[in-house]
Every structure is written in C-alpha cells, then in structure tokens.
Nucleic acid binder design. Sequence first.
DNA 1: GTTATTTATTTGTATATACAAATAAATTAT
DNA 2: ATAATTTATTTGTATATACAAATAAATAAC
Lengths: 146, 146
Amino acid sequence: MCLVKKLADCRYHRCMYFVSNALARKMEKIAIEAWKPAGLSPSHAYLLMLVIENPGVQPMALSDELQLQPSTITRLMEKLEEKKLLVRTYEGKQTNVYPSSKGKEMLPRLRQCNAEFFLTYSGILGKDESSRLVQTMSRITDKLDV
Amino acid sequence: MCLVKKLADCRYHRCMYFVSNALARKMEKIAIEAWKPAGLSPSHAYLLMLVIENPGVQPMALSDELQLQPSTITRLMEKLEEKKLLVRTYEGKQTNVYPSSKGKEMLPRLRQCNAEFFLTYSGILGKDESSRLVQTMSRITDKLDV
DNA sequence: GTTATTTATTTGTATATACAAATAAATTAT
DNA sequence: ATAATTTATTTGTATATACAAATAAATAAC
C-alpha cells in the first residue's frame, strides 16, 4: 500500500499537495520530450502558437489564456524574441506581440509536437480517461479560482 | 467558453499541460497559506513530519515517499538543518535523518496546518470530490510511471 | 488642467525543482 | 585482494514560475 515499506504513517504521498504536483511534473516531462524537436519548452511553444494564431495579441491576454503571471509571460516572450521568433511593438502602455516570419514558419512543426504530446499521454492513459482528466482538473481549477 | 474573448482558437488553456500545472499551482498556493503559521513551505513541512514520524530515515526513502528527486531532498534537508529542526548523521554511504527536539516540538502545529490545508480545499471542492480527485490523480500518476 | 487612481508591462529577486557530474561507500567479479 | 560496478548522497548549475516594486501610460476626480 505504501511505496516505501519502511516508513510508518505513509499518507503524505497520497496527499493533494504532492499528488497534484507529481502529476504536473510527469506531464511536464512528457511535454518537454514532445517539444524537443522544436527546440522549445512547452510553455514557450504554446505561447508562440498563440501569438501566431493571434498576431498583435497583448501580454495580458496571453497571461489569462495560459494561466501564468504577467511577469512570467514577459520572461517567456524575452526568450522567444532573442530567438527571433516574435517581436514586440509598443504603443502607449500597451504591448503588441507578433510572430516573425521565422516564427510563423514553425507553426506546422509546433502543431506536430502538440499532437505528439497528446498521443504520448493518451496512449498511456487512454483517450477517454485523458479527456475526462482534463475536464475534471479544468473544472476544479476554475472552482478554486474564488 | 474561452476566458479571453479576443483570442482565436482557444484550446491551449484546456490542454493537459496547462491544466495539470495550473491545478498544481493553485493547490500549492493554498498549501503555502496553510503552512505559513509554521513558518515552513509545504515541502519542508511534509519532509519534517516524515522525519519526526520516522526518525533515522534515509534521504532515499524520503525521495520515494515525497516523489521528489534525491537532490531536491538534500536541498530541503539543508534548510531544515539550518533552522535546527533536524540533524543528519553519516554512517558509510548512508545518511540518517533525525528530528531535533525543536523539530519534534513542532509536530502538533504541523498536523494542524495539514488539517487546515485539507479543510481549505475540501471546503471549496467538497470532501467527496476532493478525495475522488486525489485518488484519480494518484492512479494516473502511477500509470505514467512506466 | 492638474492631481490621483487605475491599468499594463517590465525588472529585480526569490523559490521550488531538476539534471548531470562528483564523491564516496558497498558490493560483485575476477 | 584488487578492480569494476553499483548505490546513496551531495554539489554545481539550470529552468520555470512567482511576488513585489518600479515604470509608464490612461483614465477619473476635482
């Protein structure tokens, strides 16, 4: 019942804190593998896809969509800009983010990595269980938003 | 349907990658709040509880139990040792970890924080949904272990 | 019209975690 | 008994993310 036989009172590895973190880390690992061919981390890749599909998008909108803090979005964009995959233009307090042509060219490859990611985890979990899991976690995350 | 109205093609925030990470981050936030009275992060607190309940435990066992890499366990222990909450003794290649008396004294408070954490999230999600979620995520994390 | 407040973004800094390499002890093979 | 391999732990370094403060523009209040 308890993974580590020697430990008394093994309830912590079945605690919400570690379980949710462990699942996220495992998914992250699968995602990192899936996006390696594109040379990007999963977060960078998703951000780039969003920018390609929504040229001129504002960091704020990216922050809402990806559920990451604005400062994290800035950091992700910095790296993608260094790699010449996107550009920021500034008008007033607002920033607009556009893909570069080099960035746009990556879209098919990015979509392929995304498909690969999906196939990997749903291959292990099954498609039904996978989509149920996403739905459940998504619903619960929204509930916790209070 | 899509949180950010302006964005076309909003499927990424419902992707396994972001959903699992977002849920973990929300739980982490709740946990951090819950353990503030003890002056410890959730990971440090769980590690300390395990050590109190299993005096002389080895880092490897803690790593298995908490599903964290050995190097992460070392880092967590370092901090707890700095705070005089635990001590490491070395015999051969093996390290044994013991709570200090100051550490042991914290147990009731730590348990109270743990209870507080549980009450907070299960208050929002309901007890049934909470325990179902832990079970589901736990089962799925194990499946992904392949 | 100037001042105060709000909003969007960035910068400085901190935390949690991991991977890979280093160390060192224990075990196995010869 | 020595050499080779395995195991446990630590150290050096990197990544992802966040919070709080700083900046700067836009809006509201007076």
